[in-house]
Amino acid sequence: MILPRWAERFWPVVPIIGALLFIIALLFLFGADPLESLNIMFLKPFENQAKMLSVMAFWVPLTLCALGLLVTFTGGLWNIGVEGQMILGSLGASWIALTVDAPAFVLIFLEIIVAMLAGALWGALTGFLKTHGKVHEIFGGLALNNLASMLSLYLIAGPWQPPEGGSFRGTPPFQEAALLPRFAESRFSPISFVLTILAIGLVFFALNNSFWGLKLKALGKNARSAFLLGVSSERETIYAMMFCGALAGLGGAVRVLSWFDSLRQNISGGIGYLAILVVMLAAYRLLLVPFISFFFSLVLNGSLTLQLKTQLHSSLGGILTGVMVLFILLFGEASKLGFRKEVEKDE
């Protein structure tokens, strides 16, 4: 049976609906009113400006990480280390914010550059471990994630501790000039939004209109053939990791410079891992990423309100998004359910 092209295009909606049904069943099981709960999760935030800004403020770093991950996924790389790359970015930004004295625009420019460099460096390290140390990027990435969070704990408790003594809460608040200007007393920074839009364009160009993107695709499809055709898998691997690391690092900078006002002990809290789910649910399609990422941010924020109102556990939002991705992986491709695509790519 051949699935028409339009149907195939809408196929990604199927797992989403499946997951929604699953959640509704779950809500019934807990004795909650599903309609009311879904209303609180999905619709209520739109009625409230502060809430919307908070959703957007969370959207920025999540989308940045997801964009970076698109690049590494295209190259066939599982960049679990995105979490650590984000932390390194936040350390880079904090370092400038705490030590440099300069006008705001210089400071912010420096913070962002250093954060991206730091993230890229961490990414390169994972790539290097893979190409030269034969350490798979999943394991290398996990190790570097742990190292990054230990490093940030050390800095908070040691060299960057507040004058009144380390409480592990975080560093002292940064100077006002070091913070990203925020919109209407929220944690949403318009600059970071613009940078994210630019990043979407950059990734689109890199993947679709550049020779590098073509090489990455070749690498991702079949590393051995790509190598035989003259693509340096080692170099492209490291470049892809650095590219992702830079975007994740920028995300880390946004976390400390606008979500928080200082380096906290856990600035990321799994945003990098969440971004992996975003990319999967978007089925590796760039133009879906910002929307899926918005959806995730909305659901997670909504589930906080839900927890308060109904005493349902707030991990419900996490369960919903997780179940969706699981459904995508299990039967996300129409071909797996006996349908044939119009154009057969796989032999």
């Binding site: 809430k51 969370f58 944690r187 002990q265 856990n266 809290g269 997670l300 924020n301 109102k309």
Partner: peptide
């Protein structure tokens, strides 16, 4: 569980708004 490790998307301000 209001801490950045468990709930990176939550802030005290947001929670208080809801309360």
């Amino acid at each position: 569980l209001l801490n950045p490790a468990d709930k990176p998307e939550a802030t005290l301000e947001g929670v208080v708004d809801d309360m």
